[in-house]
């Protein structure tokens, strides 16, 4: 296995690890807030569950980019391509947008979801508006996902 292949694998791993970390943190803090609301008002379970799940998407995006990268370099098929150092670095760079943005946006979307859960606790009928605030953060994770997918797909292997 060449150094290029190792770097490409590192890129795929970072996409999954960092974006997954961001989601894990976001879902965890939103889950704490959701538990606080449900302990007083169990009727809000469905609404706060949706808000808790919002920061979970970054982990999925990271997984998606990781799969595409692994597929691109042949590891999924069991026959890794012999990538040059330059190509390996290109795959690593292509995975970074969703890795870094996934981490940051997952954490921050979790915090925004906590605040949105506070809105639902006080004004359950404002759920639609409350959901928009954390959903805004999602925009940047989607942009990063797009760039990562386009970049990984565009690299000739």
């Amino acid at each position: 296995m060449t150094m290029g292949t190792v770097l490409a694998l590192l890129g795929a791993s970072l996409a999954v690890i960092l974006a997954g970390m961001g989601s894990a943190f976001g879902v965890a803090v939103a889950g704490q807030a959701a538990s606080g609301v449900v302990s007083e008002d169990p009727n809000q379970f469905a609404k706060v569950l949706i808000l808790q799940l919002l920061p979970g998407t970054q982990g999925i995006y990271g997984l998606l980019v990781g799969f595409i990268a692994l597929s691109k370099i042949g590891i999924l098929g069991g026959s890794p391509a012999e990538l040059s150092l330059q190509t390996g670095l290109m795959v690593l760079a292509a995975c970074l947008p969703i890795a870094v943005v996934g981490l940051v946006s997952g954490r921050n979307q979790g915090k925004t979801a906590v605040s949105a859960i506070g809105i639902v606790a006080k004004k359950p009928d404002q759920f639609g508006k409350a959901m928009l605030f954390p959903a805004m953060v999602e925009t940047y994770a989607i942009l990063a996902l797009l760039v990562s997918i386009l970049a990984v797909n565009g690299i000739p292997v």
Binding site: Q32, G36, V37, E40, V114, I117, G118, A121
Partner: peptide, 18 residues
């Protein structure tokens, strides 16, 4: 993030309703 008061603050938000 500050010490773990997220659960408590969310619960307080519900309690404030009463």
């Amino acid at each position: 993030m500050a010490k773990d008061y997220i659960y408590a603050v969310a619960r307080v938000r519900s309690l404030e309703m009463s």
